[in-house]
Simulated assay, not measured.
Amino acid sequence: MYTFVPWVLSALSIATSVVASPLAVPVANSTSPVIDVVTGITSALFDDFILYTKYCSASYRENCARPVGRALFNEPGHITGFIARDDGRLEIVVTFRGTHSVDDALTVGQLALTPFISRGINETFSVHTGFLNSYNGVADDVIRIVKEQLVAHPGYRIIVTGHSLGGGVAAIAAPSLRVALGDAVPLKLYTFGQPRTGDPSYATYMEDLLGEQNIHRSVHTTDGIPGFIFPSLGYAHFATEYWQYSDPIPFLLARERTIKKCVGGEDPACSAKLTTFALSSVHWTYYGQEISSDPTVCL
């Protein structure tokens, strides 16, 4: 069952509810994963991608009594999000919403790099100013709630996820939570359509701190948003990218074969080779989930 945890801030509130498992997906037996011979992607990992896109989609719903309720920041510069607990999967999921308002767009436009200073982090390398300020506005509450849940539910793992702008904020939140919780708590990051978030030293820091195997940065076909903050501005992507270079074709192209697990943060054989950086419909569809426009995630 999913238990949705109240995230109460001066600018955010969320109702607590216990519901059935509307987001549940099949999971392959961990002792015998189904691995595609071309990409090396397991069917279980593909199912995880589907699941966390549903969390991201739910974060956009303004009237979502279930499963996550209404969860909106009301102050400029802050970002909507929620924290949910999945007792079936033994997970605490921290989700950040993407661009949904003029204020969100202005946040994305704060492209200046600034030193990565956040809860428990004081680094000289730099990250996106808007993403950092958005997370810092809620960092204390996020860490407090996650710690409270871990005390009540020891052994759970942490999932940090977000789409678009929310992916950028999630990429700031994940290292902050990693430092605050210590290495004993498993933590994974799943982002979808995430823009570049920091400089090359930050990218290396992310890979070393979280472990490349715990980072899942998805790009859907020709989505231009992950590339629109150019390296010439001092930014770099971190590993590991999962590029869905083609949508599945029933009976012809199995879904696992559409994914390429990339090497490094700027693999020239993956989305880094794209030359279009415009916002398009593919940015709003990840792993078959219509991000922000699927009311079924609230049933």
Rank of each mutant, 00 (worst) to 15 (best):
D36C: 06
R157S: 14
E91S: 04
D48E: 15
G227K: 02
V94R: 04
L132N: 06
R178W: 09
L45E: 15
E91F: 04
H220R: 11
R157G: 07
G167C: 06
D87E: 15
L299H: 09
C270K: 02
I291V: 15
S293A: 13
F125G: 07
H78D: 10
A84N: 06
N63G: 01
T114M: 05
G224F: 05
D86I: 00
A112K: 09
T31R: 09
Y190T: 01
P115W: 11
Y242G: 01
W7Q: 03
V169S: 02
R119I: 08
Y2Q: 08
F73N: 13
R97Y: 09
N214G: 08
A15M: 04
I225T: 12
L106K: 12
A58E: 12
L72H: 07
V27R: 14
F116K: 01
L23K: 01
L210R: 04
S43Y: 13
T124R: 11
A269K: 06
L274D: 15
S57Y: 03
Q244V: 05
I92L: 07
F125E: 11
G234W: 07
S246D: 14
Y52K: 01
P226N: 08
R61L: 15
E75K: 13
S13V: 12
G168S: 04
C64M: 10
P154I: 05
F251Y: 12
R66I: 13
G167H: 09
Y242D: 06
A105I: 12
A15L: 08
G211Y: 08
A112F: 11
I291R: 02
S57W: 02
A239P: 09
T124K: 10
I229P: 02
G234M: 02
H220W: 11
A203Y: 04
I35M: 10
Y135N: 00
F131C: 02
A184W: 00
D208I: 09
N29E: 14
S292Q: 11
G69A: 04
L299W: 11
N133S: 13
F228W: 10
Y60P: 07
C56W: 03
A236D: 05
C262Q: 06
V219G: 04
N136T: 07
Y287F: 15
A84Q: 05
F96W: 15
K54R: 15
L233D: 07
G211I: 02
Y235M: 02
L177Q: 08
L23G: 10
V8N: 12
S292I: 01
I41P: 00
Y202K: 01
I215N: 10
V93T: 14
V160T: 10
E256T: 11
G155N: 06
V38F: 15
A84F: 02
M206A: 10
G168N: 03
D140E: 14
R144Y: 13
I143L: 07
F116W: 08
K261F: 00
I158Q: 05
S21R: 03
A139W: 11
Y2I: 15
T191V: 08
F116N: 04
G130S: 08
